[in-house]
């Protein structure tokens, strides 16, 4: 099995679920140049990140190139319960995408 590009952790504490996701992605701005050839490195960045739990979109975000390499995002919500499945997915400007599911602990 191919290892997912996303690491995700969702934990409940005092009724608040904290979701933390770490995505491995170059987040290339398109402004950088290759040091050896001087050619610009084409942009490759995540444009959309979505987080869904119980068929409800909790977080829907649009990203630009200014999100750091290997992006990290964390958010909190109420109303989650232990064992809920939480799904995080991303899509980049080259139409590549990935997603992962995890259980709320």
């Amino acid at each position: 099995m191919i290892r997912s590009s996303i690491k995700i952790r969702a934990k409940i504490k005092n009724g608040i679920t904290t979701v933390k996701a770490l995505i491995s992605h170059p987040m290339e701005t398109g402004l950088r140049k290759d040091r050896k050839t001087g050619q610009p490195i084409p942009a490759k960045f995540i444009s959309n990140v979505k987080c869904v739990s119980n068929e409800k979109v909790l977080l829907n975000s649009q990203w630009g190139v200014a999100v750091a390499k290997n992006p990290y995002v964390s958010f909190k919500y109420t109303g989650g319960s232990i064992g809920d499945i939480i799904k995080v997915s991303w899509l980049d400007n080259t139409n590549q995408s990935d997603s992962i599911e995890a259980k709320v602990k």
Binding site: L59, A66, K69, Y72, V73, S74, F75, Y77, T78
Partner: peptide
């Protein structure tokens, strides 16, 4: 349902 909270890393 979300709490007004976002944590991330930017350039």
């Amino acid at each position: 349902d979300c709490i007004a909270f976002i944590s991330t890393r930017i350039k």
